[in-house]
Design a protein around this nucleic acid. Structure first.
Lengths: 337, 337
DNA sequence: TTCAATGCTGACACCGGTGTCATAATGTCG
DNA sequence: CGACATTATGACACCGGTGTCAGCATTGAA
């Protein structure tokens, strides 16, 4: 069984390579008869063009890189799922590249990645989406990129986000409507722009409901479960104890829940707990966490789709979309008694 | 800034392309003087060979595919981490390919993957590692592959596993030593060979401690959290209720814990619960789950490393290794009262 | 009827590497 | 010192596609 190449197809069909190439790429200036003939040979010989040869000729790799540095495995897989789907739609492949934002010489790392892998474009996921040094670098290298869940919009690039501020607002208001006034807040990792956004939403909800913001109720976390434990320890020891805790993601919320349970507190009777992200753990624990669900797959899918179409035909119009986040109510929040 | 290719290096160094190529690939028959000279030019021009051109010439892609179909995000990311590390060590890239074992026409799906991506090799993770149809297909196509966590060893291929049977034996014996005699068991997904292995270990521990195996205490799960809930419902309603439950993975164990808690049972005072895999959730919930930790990254790393070395120089000697699994004791198991 | 415009097709170079083979330079030995 | 083996190097084809351009056929307008 010999390899089927454009040459075998051409000689079998009795036309030139170039004509076969024209049919492959749906170029004009091929008579219908010829096109039909070639297409038939494609089927007969079960021909698939070699992306590597194509890549060499066009100086493209048909590969999109996906950068991430995230403690949440579920977030990572959701990002991958969305990105993969978009890639497959356009015969691209996805190269995953976990790396540390604060690792030694990130830019060098990325430069090497670009050198050795010849990526056609890059998807930036948090916290890279809003890392100016990296964005500037990619711009200078003229590497197309798309940003997922970025907070900064004043830019001419592709950016798909969901409304973190609004989500945080809604879940905080949900707690307020249940009668809570003393609502502790655990911040996320300072490198993530979502951290600031969620904090803003929390404060806006307090303000718009006439509740005074209290600095003492705010703890610094970093999205990791472990940081949630530390923050929870401080918060649960406060006198008087807040009646609710809103953690910036579900892992930290789960940590609060664990500690509260260890301290014999009943959730939600003694204290309400809310998270963010709707990670699997939110429904794997008891009580299930009230949280905010974001369309992560959808965001990434749109970002990559736009990125690919931008690569094939560069356009000036930026693509910037904000998708909706949704409140999911579970058992961890209840009316104050 | 022009592109730096092998041609520019050659003319700049005053030698032929071929000589540059020889230096690149550490081939013999280059005088030390010439080699030095060329290496210096590499540095000066900051040259990196184009893997696409190389791939075309050698009919290789320098890409390894990674197949998986697994509900556990943490398992997937661990697999990816190990595989990526091995790939980077050898200037390979990793292409992730989630797909359904029982999906429509798996073989076709994979065939298309091979056609369009020109993979140099494939890593099979459970449940693909022990799926005969796929293995046979890859063999017939002469695609190098490596199997991770496969149970079947009578094969001449690369296979790296950990000892599921022994792990299950140890954790069951751990329960027995705590005084438990009525130990329920929740099976995993029948497509995974680990399911059978873990069950075997459970039975061996019972047998070697003179406890009679009781069919009534065994439930069919499929590794998903949801299936754990179903199994838990049945188990916790048994009269008399077993004093311990050993679930084939942590998600199902977490489900048992959730249901037990909802039923006002104290864990581990009223009932002990053990899991398998040491997934993040095992330490994110309260009480933390006693479980078995497997070196997933290490397994995948070894498998991919071997796969790549097999690709560069095919050898007949199969590489088959079994790594150790380790018992991790947390709060969810305790002596019977 | 003639000439320009347009449509269709193929020859050929090119992308950036590697493989083959011929040849020049050097070393070895009787 | 000449015959021969060995080492070092380069010319050139090749991998499987795409881009450029020339040439021929056909069509439309003058």
């Amino acid at each position: 069984m010999k390899k089927v190449t454009i040459n075998s197809v051409a000689s079998y069909a009795g036309v030139s390579k170039k004509t076969v190439s024209r049919v492959l790429n749906n170029e004009p200036n091929v008579s219908d008869a010829t096109r039909e003939k070639v297409l038939k040979v494609f089927k007969e010989l079960d021909y698939t063009p070699n992306p590597i040869a194509r890549g060499l000729a066009q100086n493209r790799s048909f590969i999109i890189g996906c950068l991430y540095d995230n403690p949440s495995k579920s977030y990572i897989t959701r990002v991958q799922t969305g990105a993969l789907a978009a890639c497959h739609d356009h015969n691209y492949n996805l190269l995953i590249h976990p790396c540390e934002l604060r690792g030694q010489d990130l830019i060098n790392n990325i430069e090497q990645l670009l050198q050795t892998s010849r990526l056609d474009g890059i998807v930036l996921t948090p916290p890279f989406s809003d890392f100016p040094e990296l964005v500037t670098f990619l711009k200078s290298k003229k590497i197309p990129y798309a940003r997922v869940a970025s907070a900064v919009l004043e830019d001419d690039s592709i950016s798909v986000r969901s409304n973190d501020e609004q989500g945080a607002f809604e879940i905080t208001e949900h707690l307020i409507k249940l009668g809570h006034k003393e609502i502790a807040f655990i911040k996320g990792h300072p490198d993530h722009s979502a951290t600031e956004q969620r904090f803003k939403g929390y404060r806006r909800a307090l303000a718009s409901n006439g509740i005074e913001f209290n600095e003492r109720l705010v703890e610094e976390g970093n999205f990791s479960y472990h940081s949630g434990v530390d923050s929870a320890r401080t918060i649960l020891d406060l006198e008087p104890r807040p009646t609710a805790v809103f953690a910036s993601n579900d892992y930290m919320a789960a940590a609060v829940l664990k500690l509260a349970t260890q301290m014999q507190l009943k959730v939600p009777d003694d204290i309400s707990i809310a998270g963010f992200d709707n990670a699997p753990i939110a429904r794997h624990i008891w009580p299930g966490l009230t949280t905010i669900a974001q369309p992560v797959e959808e965001m990434t899918h749109q970002a990559v789709t736009q990125l690919i179409s931008h690569i094939s035909e560069p356009q000036e119009t930026p693509y910037q979309v904000t998708l909706e986040a949704k409140l999911i109510t579970r058992e961890s929040t209840a009316a104050i008694k």
